[in-house]
């Protein structure tokens, strides 16, 4: 496959990199990445993956853009308030890089549809904002043998890990979602917008690394950082033999939707 002059120029700073080069860029261009959640994490991830030239980007989100999103969800602009997030994002991606094919799914990822959604993608980015969705994505990716990047943010903290079939999965570390109300959601606790950008960008980098095969993924490692201290650390994690989804005798064999805690600000009380 040959790059056009324009593509050569567009991707030149990737091609120059010894670890990516022509071959790596070709892999990126052929790559397909699904981003579930087009919010704080999905927005920067989608922007970078689009700029990098990922051939197909899938977007899954059932929400519309709200004014409070704009503080961190940088792919959406003020005029987009009220529009479905996936459409707003698709438009930006195509402006950044017309080479990218964008598949927009204006729906929530659920137990019913998720296996179908992830089926045709090489890599999944978890950009969701709640525990049930994160566990759902994990379980679906383990069952569907799809690599994915987990990401979670709260206040000034971020955490991320990468799963590839065979490595420790999210449930190996966190057995099941915390009880409702035990962990505050973003809307209750707040989030520094840049933290979302930092983590989403890390996830994008993991996706590109996965596609090109360069470097070392965050598999069996949980990266945790705090933006107040700017301490980054990696915790080594291990695959749990008793893991309910990827362990020796799994107890979760079908996908179910756990109760979705609602984001307080989004839905008026009552």
């Amino acid at each position: 496959m040959d790059f056009t002059e324009e593509q050569l120029e567009r991707y030149s700073r990737h091609i120059i990199l010894k670890d990516i080069g022509v071959e790596g860029q070709q892999k990126i261009v052929r790559g397909k990445v699904l981003i579930i959640g087009t919010g704080g994490l999905g927005a920067p991830a989608a922007l970078y993956l689009a700029a990098a030239g990922v051939g197909t980007i899938g977007l899954v989100d059932g929400d519309v853009v709200e004014l409070s999103n704009l503080q961190r969800q940088v792919i959406h602009f003020t005029p987009d308030v009220g529009r479905p997030k996936v459409l707003s994002a698709k438009e930006k991606i195509e402006k950044i890089n017309p080479d990218v094919r964008v598949l927009a799914f204006h729906q929530r990822a659920t137990a019913d549809n998720i296996l179908g959604l992830i089926k045709d993608f090489d890599f999944i980015v978890d950009g969701t904002d709640n525990f049930p969705a994160k566990f759902l994505i994990n379980d679906a990716c383990v069952m569907g043998k799809k690599p994915f990047s987990h990401g979670g943010i709260l206040r000034f903290d971020g955490q991320t890990m990468t799963y590839v079939p065979g490595s420790a999965c999210y449930r190996c570390i966190f057995d099941s979602p915390p009880p409702k109300g035990a962990v505050p959601s973003c809307s209750q606790a707040g989030i520094l917008g840049a933290v979302a950008g930092m983590l989403g960008t890390i996830q994008a980098a993991e996706a590109v690394k996965f596609l090109t095969g360069c470097g070392e993924l965050l598999t069996n490692k949980l990266l945790i950082f705090n933006a107040l201290t700017m301490n980054f650390r990696q915790a080594r994690v291990h695959r749990a033999p008793q893991c309910p989804v990827c362990g020796e005798s799994p107890t979760i064999t079908t996908l179910v939707d756990a109760e979705q805690p609602v984001c307080d600000l989004k839905r008026p009380p009552g």
């Binding site: 050569l8 120029e9 030149s12 700073r13 091609i15 120059i16 080069g21 022509v22």
Partner: peptide
């Protein structure tokens, strides 16, 4: 620079 290098890499590929 650096397009000459990019093109060199392309040719080498």
């Amino acid at each position: 620079c650096p397009m000459n290098f990019v093109k060199t890499k392309m040719a080498l590929a």
